[in-house]
Design a protein around this nucleic acid. Structure first.
Length: 501
RNA sequence: GCACCCUUCGUCUAGCGGCUUAGGACUCUGCCCUUUCACGGCAGCAACACGGGUUCAAAUCCCGUAGGGUGCACCA
């Protein structure tokens, strides 16, 4: 920021104004996942809120990978997170920041804190610390570091032992955080012990790195899960020790599983890519997620523009929400229905190879092999009818199966019931009429079939059901004219013929 | 154990002292529409955790109780 300023100072007045604007007005949010696993649903919502707030304020939304724990961070997890955000449409501004790359700077700041007397060397061994915690617990005391090296002078330090750098938290008084969601939250300083800034191998811990990075990146608003609420107090103390401006906090409540407890595999603790594989649309997931904790009156369905326009930290509630697949599904049905065919096709192609059910089992495994370009064409003809009645892409594809199966069709029991001697007779006559149709369009087909039922003085159901059975082998399907049309004349006639003998 | 946070229909929530016989959405049930399924339309079931205050008036403010959650690592 300072470097930028210098450059701008040499330029004209407009730039100077811009610089001032940058210094004081720019809203910057960040999403800061740790790459130790996939991007789960809670993280996705945190990212969404950060993204929405930045959009709403016309600010920036940055991505920082918190990989200071080199042991547990994996490239696979990083890819999964980036891919997940991309799919959800929560593209970050600029390049992602990798926290471990700032280690030097973090160490420098730790040194600064040491010099200014805000931190100290602690020579405790792991065993000592464990013992400390055990005794505390045995005495029904909170397990905390007792500060035994806090006031030791350099003369008392061993020369050949490993040490960590600890932050010297204020002993008395309280730390107050003003939170946009939680309101004013007060912690007694005696509740907070001296946290570690630098490990014995010299590597910085999360608590140090976040503060330094958020400061250096110019983050104005920290929106994250409320599991970080106590961290906010600790971080506030570090900001104060450094004399840095404290960013605005907004700690959002967590998402629980359907049973009210922690998210389990069954109830949403899945990577967002799992939702893609279950056949959910990103806009549906976004819409569902934004309503978990945030509201705009009685509104339920938002397109992205509306979300951005209406989003505010003020309207975020404080109580945790439970994850409910039923509602997600309903929303998904809505977005499938309203999605244009071309986009829907792309989603289908992308997700089809990985389709799973809600238990995570692979489904429709034979479909990818079935889907020749010709079949995708066929599918696109049937899409308008198909998307009306599917709540997930998996369901949609499953319902589309009749398009691709080979003749003669296997007949489901409930479908076969419609094929009686009587109905076969009608089908035969209808077949004759259909074979003369030149213009195989939905309108013509409808006219022709209606004419047939009029002539015969039949209820439409009398002929539609047997026809459906013959054409699809199933008791349910899209509208019968949709089916005839998508199948095409040749295939339709052949399928009817198959059932006559 | 200690600290902090939370508590309106089964679920997500509206409500921010009187407009409330507490509204919407999902789920469920019934009816209508109808070529099946789905959509859609209509109707119905269903909640202010409990106990004290404050006030002319409380789901809304305060205090307790109970229940739930989160945090308390050389993880992030």
């Amino acid at each position: 920021m300072l470097d930028n300023l210098k450059v701008i100072f040499t330029q004209d007045a407009t730039s100077l104004q811009n610089a001032h604007y940058l210094m004081t007005k720019t809203i910057k949010t960040r999403f800061a996942p740790s790459p130790t696993g996939f991007l789960h649903i809670g993280g996705a919502r945190t990212a969404l809120f950060n993204w929405l707030y930045a959009q709403n304020q016309q600010g920036e939304y940055l991505l920082r990978i918190e990989d200071t724990d080199r042991e547990r961070s994996t490239d696979g997890a990083i890819d999964a997170i980036l891919d997940g955000l991309d799919w959800l449409g929560l593209k970050w501004d600029g390049d992602p920041v990798f926290q471990h790359q700032g280690a030097k700077r973090h160490q420098e700041i730790a040194g600064q804190l040491l010099e200014s007397g805000h931190a100290y060397k602690c020579f405790c061994t792991a065993e000592e610390l464990q013992e400390m915690r055990d005794t505390a617990r045995a005495n029904k005391q909170p397990p905390r570091y007792d500060g035994r090296w806090r006031d030791k002078s350099a003369a008392d330090h061993p020369t050949d032992a490993d040490f960590v750098i600890r932050f010297k938290t204020p002993k008395d008084g309280q730390t107050i955080i003003g939170d946009k969601v939680q309101g004013k939250v007060t912690f007694a300083n005696k509740e907070l012990d001296d946290l570690i800034l630098l490990r014995s191998d010299g590597s910085p811990t999360y608590m140090l790195s976040v503060v330094v990075d958020d400061h250096d990146m110019g983050i104005s608003h920290i929106i994250r899960g409320d599991d970080h609420l106590t961290n906010a107090a600790r971080q506030t103390q570090i900001y104060n020790a450094l004399g840095w401006k404290i960013p605005t906090f907004a700690h959002i409540p967590l998402i629980h599983g359907a049973d009210g407890a922690k998210l389990s595999k069954r109830h949403g603790a899945l990577g967002v890519e799992a939702y893609r594989s279950m056949g959910y649309l990103p806009e549906a997931l976004r819409n569902y997620l934004v309503r978990l904790g945030w509201s705009h009156g009685n509104d339920e369905i938002f397109d992205t523009d509306q979300m951005v326009k209406w989003f505010s930290l003020k309207s975020i509630g404080k109580s945790p929400a439970r994850f409910d697949f039923k509602k997600l599904k309903n929303l998904n049905g809505h977005y499938i229905k309203t999605c244009d065919d071309a986009t829907l096709s792309q989603h289908l192609r992308r997700a089809l190879p990985d389709f799973i059910d809600e238990d995570g089992n692979r489904v429709l495994e034979d479909m990818p092999g079935l889907m020749s370009e010709e079949n995708w064409q066929k599918l696109s003809l049937a899409l308008p009818g198909l998307k009306e009645r599917a709540k997930t892409l998996v369901e949609l594809m499953d319902n589309a199966r009749f398009l691709f199966v080979a003749r003669p069709l296997a007949m489901a029991e409930k479908a076969g019931k419609h094929l009686t001697d009587e109905s076969r007779g009608y089908l035969g006559e209808l077949l004759e009429r259909l074979s003369h149709i030149e213009d195989w369009s939905m309108d013509t087909l409808e006219t022709e079939v209606k004419k047939f039922t009029d002539d015969k003085e039949l209820k439409l159901g009398k002929i539609a059901q047997p026809l459906r059975a013959a054409l699809t082998g199933t008791p349910t399907s899209p509208g019968i004219y949709d089916v005839l049309y998508a199948l095409g004349k040749e295939e339709s006639l052949a399928r009817i013929q198959d059932q006559l003998s």
